[in-house]
Design a protein around this nucleic acid. Sequence first.
DNA 1: AACTTGCTAATGTATATACAACATAGCAAA
DNA 2: TTTGCTATGTTGTATATACATTAGCAAGTT
Lengths: 251, 251
Amino acid sequence: MAKFAVIKEHIYQKIESGEWPEYHPVSSENELSAEFNVSRMTARRALQELSDEGLVTRTRGSGTFVAPLKSQSALLTIRNIADEIKMRNHKHHAVVRSLQSVPALPHIAAALQLDPEGHVFHSVITHFENGQAVQVEERFVNPLLVPNYLEQDFTEHTPHEYLCEVTPLTEASHLIEAVMPTKQTAKWLDMHEVEPCLQIQRRTWCRDGVVSQATLTHPGSRFRLGGHMTFKSTQRSSRGAAKGSTTGDEQ
Amino acid sequence: MAKFAVIKEHIYQKIESGEWPEYHPVSSENELSAEFNVSRMTARRALQELSDEGLVTRTRGSGTFVAPLKSQSALLTIRNIADEIKMRNHKHHAVVRSLQSVPALPHIAAALQLDPEGHVFHSVITHFENGQAVQVEERFVNPLLVPNYLEQDFTEHTPHEYLCEVTPLTEASHLIEAVMPTKQTAKWLDMHEVEPCLQIQRRTWCRDGVVSQATLTHPGSRFRLGGHMTFKSTQRSSRGAAKGSTTGDEQ
DNA sequence: AACTTGCTAATGTATATACAACATAGCAAA
DNA sequence: TTTGCTATGTTGTATATACATTAGCAAGTT
C-alpha cells in the first residue's frame, strides 16, 4: 500500500473506532512525517484527502481536527428529523409508541443480515413539529451491534442520534416511495386515510454490518424532501463535488 | 488566484464551452507545465483535482481525457428515466402529449428567472416501461438558453438527454413529495385516482442560468426511488465521497 | 500471422525545500 | 484592562528532482 494510504488508514481507524471523537486534534503534518518517517508532503496528502472526504477539517494556522459527524451526514444525505425541525426554529418533540425486543421476521432478519431464529429490537416513534405529527419512525435494530438500544430515552435524543454515537455509520441506502398509510399510521399522524404519504426506507451500515432498518412515513401534505446539488468545480477541490442540503424551504 | 486554480479554470472552460467534447485529450502534465510556466507538480494538482471531481479521467501511460458526461450525471444524481429503464433491460417508449410555447405564469417565470411578460416552452411527455406508463414529465424550459427546444423529437431522445447536450448542467435542485394525481395525470398514467404518486420537482441550472423546471410524476405502486451511498474512504481520494446509484432493485 | 522485445511518453508516488498566510499564546506598553 | 506586537507552530502554495508503473507503438523474431 502507498505510504500516504497507510497514514490515511491509521487516522481513519482512530476516527472510526471512536478513539478520536469530534473535534479531536489530529497529528500535524510535521508530527505525522516524523512518526511515519515520510516527508511532510506525503503526510500532507493523507490529511488533504481525508479533508476532501469530509472526515477532518483543516484550518491554516490552527491545525487539523476530526470533523463533526454532522458533515458526514451531509455527505450521506442522512437526515435527522429533529435537526431539521430545529433548523427551522420550530419545536420538536417525540412520543415513543413502542420499544421492545421482538422475534425477527424473515425479511427483517435478512435485511439486518441476522440469524432468522433470533430477536431484534423494535421501536416506533412519532415525531412532532410545533405539536403537529410529521413522521412515524418504525425501526428494527441489530441487537448484536447496539445491545443497549432498549434502555435509551428517545424523547431526549432520536434513535438516529444515538445510533450515530455508538456506531459510526459508513454506509446508507434509501428507498423512497409514495404510499397510502395504514390505519394505525394515519391515526398516529392525525391524518385522513385517503391522503398519500412519503415513505423513506433506510438501511444503515457501520463497519461491522447492518445497524438498522428504518421506515420513515410522512404525511404528503406536511412534508417535502428537498435537495440541492452543484458541481461548480471552480472553487475547492473535491469538497464541491456534491454538496447536498436536505430540507425543503427553497424558492 | 492560485496557479493550479488558473489551470483548472482554463480546462474547465474548455470542457464547459463544448470546445473539448467527451474523451477529448487534455494537455499532459508536461505540456501544461510548459504552457503555464509552472512546475509539473502544480500542473499535476490541477489535473488531479479535476479528476477527483469527475470532469476528466486519467490513465497512467495513456493520458488525461475529458470524462463522459454520464459520470457528471452520477455526481448530480440526476436521473434519466430512459437510461434507467434500459439499464433494467426493459423497453422504453415515450408519447408526446404537448409541445408548445405558452405564456409564462408568474411562478414559472420566477422559477426560471425570466421576465414575467414573456413566453416559455412547455412539454408534457408520458414515459412507458414495457408498455406500462411510469412517468408523466411536465417541463418548462427557458427559451433563451434552449431556443430550439420545440423542434426536437422527444420520442427519440428524452428532454433530459437533449438538454444535457446543449447546455452542460452545473446545478440541480430536487423536491420530492407524495401527492394525489390530477384527473388528467391519473388518466395518462392509467391508474386509479385514489392511488398516491411520487412527484419529483427538479430545477436545473447551467452556467448562464436556470435551464428548466420539471415535474416528474410516478405512480406510487410502480415506482421507487432508490439510492445507496458510502464513504469507505479507504480507497481513492474524493472519488469515493458520494457514490450514488439511482434506481431500486436492491436487496 | 502471432508473439516478443524494447523504447517512449504519461501518470503515480515520494522526497526535500522554500516561502506565504494564518492562528494563537504570551508578553509588553499604553 | 486594553491594545498591540512578536514568536512560534500550522497549513497552503510552489518548485525541483527522482524513480516506479503502465499504455501504446514499432520493430524485430519466431
